[in-house]
Design a protein around this nucleic acid. Sequence first.
DNA 1: AAAAGTACCTGCGCGC
DNA 2: TGCGCGCAGGTACTTT
Length: 299
Amino acid sequence: MPELPEVETVRAGLANSILGYSVQAVEILDARSLKRNAGGPKGFKKEILGAKFQQVIRRGKFFWFPISKERALVGHLGMSGQILVRKPADVEDKCTRVILELSRGRSSKQVRFIDQRLFGGLYFDDLVLTSDGKPAGFGPEGRVEPLIPSSASHIARDLLDPHFDPDAVVEKMLTRKTGIKNVLLDQNLMSGIGNIYADESLWLAKLHYNTPAELLSKKKALELIELATDVLRKAVAQGGTSFDEQYKNVNGESGYFAVSLNAYGQTDEPCPRCGTPIRREAWSNRGSHFCPRCQKLKI
DNA sequence: AAAAGTACCTGCGCGC
DNA sequence: TGCGCGCAGGTACTTT
């Protein structure tokens, strides 16, 4: 479920369903999903037993549960991760890697970490002070402390963060010589955007993905940030983008933003603005989708 | 600092 | 039906 809207959908789902629950048992079906845990699977088991979930916070595509003042359980979905909240008796889900058995009073639930490609994972990490001393991320269920997992401390604030500073980010964008899409995807500059929402934002801004960032005017760069923010916000409202069996919310339901996509995954479909067929070009080991007429490369 | 390339993985759908 | 190929919402690490 990987970009900000999909991760936020998961975060909100977890906030709704498992706060107040504690971990009674853990089943590790594939230890590779815990490879970022410094103490290995054994240490993970030890640390998670008895842990109580009281808040879930997200920055960009990272989310975490503070477990104490110093430690958090961190999750990242990578390219194909999912979190499903199930009842213990529910049928098993394909590609399940880790199962947490939870209880609160008499109520029992399972958190299933599912991940086809194993690029995601769960792990414990130390909480460190945010570099700006402001709340670490998004978690509206409680006061968010200025404490962030050390492994995510290099991740910039995302576009939906109340402390995101568009002017400061634009300033940095305009010093970059690389293509604008690389800049949108740079999680150290602004976080939350991935391949879908980068292509969608560039389509909205009528920019070619390889336009050198430094050639944009300040006004155009700011407009791009605003369009990207808008697209993320709308996608969150729709529960994210789902194309297939992956990318569901914690109840296993699809999001509805796919119907609003203008460029991503629309190869050979008419551009909703001008009717020219959308083109897909190989780019950076993946693809870029754009309208060859609306999004010309002007250097 | 920044940019570019590579590594990490599995499984699905497609054409033959 | 089976096989090989291309494809996939990401990040971290290395090298220049």
